[in-house]
Design a protein around this nucleic acid. Structure first.
Lengths: 232, 232
DNA sequence: GCGGCACTTCGGCGGGCGCCGAACCGTCGC
DNA sequence: GCGACGGTTCGGCGCCCGCCGAAGTGCCGC
């Protein structure tokens, strides 16, 4: 009986159009700010605050406060899997490959891929770790680009300084990688890094999808630049 | 966006204590009547009617009208799996084996088992099919014991007539078998058949669980009585 | 065919919940 | 510092939804 109450309480988290829209948006694996989710769902920020409180309290989401921002993402891959199971049930005929499980099944995608406009997969995590080790990123401070890091990006990597001026988009953003269960670098800096790697042919796209592969030239360059090895 | 509405609408089906209690009750795989579910959930019958309409309309349950009864059960194994996934999330530490998936994994259980007090699994379905072929059961009429069937149960199988008088419990009831995706015989008649098989040592329990095995004597007897073969 | 039973329909009540706007608080950038 | 901005708190509004009981409808058994 109490079991039924728990089930009902859990289901109630998703039983609201606004909260459902938030969870579906977060289904992409990225961390969103409260304001972005409010805009996405079409409600006032104050309303979004309450919904996020409930979703976090219910264990579906986790938050990371960063300055005046409240970043929020799905709590764990289990939540993503559950959402996928339910939505798959809702559209029986539709693409079975839309979700993250399909990505899991594909070794190439697991190795390396783009997530929107930045690197993800093992490659994305490896690059992020190397950037952290090199002092470019400060993960302790919640995924911030350090002052030295800015210099590194412009001088070592060769990104034009004005392309790193944060406008509406945060410079660095943590993006959770389901297949790796790790965060990798998103945001403006993540996009610039990916862009540069592609420009220089350090990585190339495989086919027309999101999968990418490190080229021989890229293996040499990334070893030279970041000490990375074993990027097949 | 419309996607979010659909997800919310679906989740709303389970987001009520009463409906959740109904679904959890049906999780055992049996078909319940509307009145039974109302009593189980502790609401008026009129209230239960509305809830069942919603659950059926949403595709979680299916109904089978039979006389003045409204039998209802989970729509398909996918629903059971979904419920299992969700409840497993709610009690992370608890028995991973409570559900039906565990049964699926166990070959012995898949072959033959008891479901409450009647036979299930391949054995249960085979016996039910044979009883139907022998004219004991009329599945077209919604799982009814025929007049000839009553005679068969008493004269051929040797069940005492007064043990087949239906009281509150229906004489025959369809019980859905998840592993076989087929109905098998439950209700009073199902219990008597199972009881008789066990009494005569045609089937014996394996260990202390629900799994059962057909004995050599049982194989001979069931072949003689119902033409059944291949019951290892 | 007549009572009894399972279920359904309907009207009405009450509580919960989602929504907003206004005021407030902390952080960031000039 | 001071304004801008993201997020939070609070009060109040309105709707939706779950609940019941009473009356109605088929179906069953005597």
């Amino acid at each position: 009986m109490s079991d039924a109450s728990e089930l009902a309480a859990f289901a109630a988290l998703l039983a609201d159009r606004t909260r459902a829209a938030m969870c579906l948006a977060l289904f992409d694996g990225r961390a969103w700010t409260a304001g972005e989710l409010a805009a996405h769902a079409g409600v006032a920020r104050s309303t979004a605050t309450g919904h996020l409180d409930r979703l976090i309290g219910g264990g579906l989401l986790v938050e990371a406060r960063q300055g005046r921002h409240r970043y929020v993402r799905l709590a764990d891959p289990g939540v993503a899997g559950l959402l996928e199971d339910i939505t798959a049930r809702l559209e029986p005929g539709l693409p079975p490959a839309r979700g993250l499980r399909a990505a899991t099944a594909d070794a190439a995608l697991r190795r390396g891929r783009t997530c929107y406009d930045h690197l993800a997969g093992r490659l994305g995590v490896a690059v992020t770790d190397a950037l952290t080790a090199a002092g470019v990123l400060d993960q302790a401070a919640g995924f911030a680009v350090t002052d030295d890091g800015l210099t590194w990006l412009t001088d070592r990597l060769g990104v034009a300084p004005d392309r790193l001026r944060a406008g509406r988009r945060p410079l660095a953003r943590a993006c959770l990688d389901w297949t790796e269960r790790r965060s990798h670098l998103g945001g403006l800096a993540g996009a610039r890094v990916c862009e540069t790697f592609l420009d220089r042919r350090w990585v190339t796209r495989i086919g027309s999808g999101r999968a990418v592969r490190v080229t021989p030239a890229g293996q040499a360059a990334l070893h030279e630049l970041l000490g990375l090895t074993g990027l097949d």
